[in-house]
Design a protein around this nucleic acid. Structure first.
Lengths: 168, 168
DNA sequence: GAGAATTAGTTAGCCGCGTAAAGATTGTGC
DNA sequence: GCACAATCTTTACGCGGCTAACTAATTCTC
């Protein structure tokens, strides 16, 4: 594609990332949260207790990032950590009562942010936006086309942890 | 909108931001650059010498972020800083010969990144993607609908510095 | 079973990006 | 002419996110 289009595309992603994060930060601050924390809390709410590895996959970031955020959320009393009974290497993270109490306002805040985001559109429908973004996000999730490191990844490739019986 | 859609939207933006940035970082590293640096260099290439304030507006980030990145790019010899003759407060940033030399490979790299980004799509055309993303980016650029802080912003509101005679 | 390879988690150090506050210069109202 | 507000930049500090290197536990392999 032409450079002008490429720059417009990359630049748009850049500014979307920065601005959307800024708006999320402003809203999350009302709950004492920082951007990224909501991903962990919402994953725990949606799929139950999980290991940090599962959280990393679900949140789309690397384990070291999870370590620090989980530590802070634990310090804030929103979640608990215990080592897995099946695997002594793994740490199982779960919401505390205090953490569960923040889920409802968090979800409302999260919906407001999405509503504001689509409200800023001038020539695109919400359905279009969601379709295009999910397509793009799914495409970017996998490492790189033609990576060659054969491993077909464990599980179903959905990147989502299974709702479970807590046997982690 | 429903919470599931809102979460899908916000989550998609989150993962797009992280993954796109990661890919950009991998490519930019070949030129010794970090994400964000390319925005400054490409702005200087496109619009000529500018103040840091103009760069902040053009790059869509805050002045303190510009200060640090410009310092590092200056240390790398890619750009120069001089205080403006019109306004002793302002610092005018310009590409050096070494900085100009990196523009060509940078643009090529930038085009490759955009190509890979659209290549990861499965059910969206490049035109659709570009249209939706620019619409969204433009919408998010302005502070917040109903902010109320009257100031209509200086200039034409395009957020872009003027190609100029260098009288800054 | 012993040793190698893999995996979960942590640590240390880097960077971008943000806010808040300070300093320096410019512009403005009286 | 002078105090005051507005603007450009910098500093200090905090946060998320990354890679690389490390430990500890598990699993594979012979």
């Amino acid at each position: 594609m032409k450079y002008e289009q490429a720059d417009a595309l990359n630049g748009a992603i850049r500014v979307i990332a920065i601005r959307h994060r800024a708006r999320a930060a402003a809203k999350l601050a009302e709950l004492g949260l920082h951007p990224g924390h909501e991903a962990i809390l919402l994953l725990l709410d949606a799929y139950g207790p999980q290991t940090q590895k599962q959280l990393a996959v679900g949140a789309g970031c690397e384990p070291p990032s999870i370590t620090l955020m989980v530590r802070k959320l634990e310090a804030a009393g929103l979640l608990s950590r215990r080592s897995s009974t099946q695997d002594a290497r793994a740490v199982v993270v779960a919401l505390t009562d205090q953490g569960r109490a923040v889920i409802a306002p968090l979800k409302e805040l999260w919906r407001d942010l999405a509503d504001e985001t689509v409200a800023s559109l001038t020539s695109t429908s919400a359905e279009q936006l969601l379709a295009v973004l999910t397509d793009l996000a799914n495409g970017l999730r996998r490492p790189l086309a033609g990576d060659g490191s054969g491993s077909p990844a464990s599980g179903d490739g959905s990147g989502r942890p299974l709702a479970g019986d807590g046997s982690v």
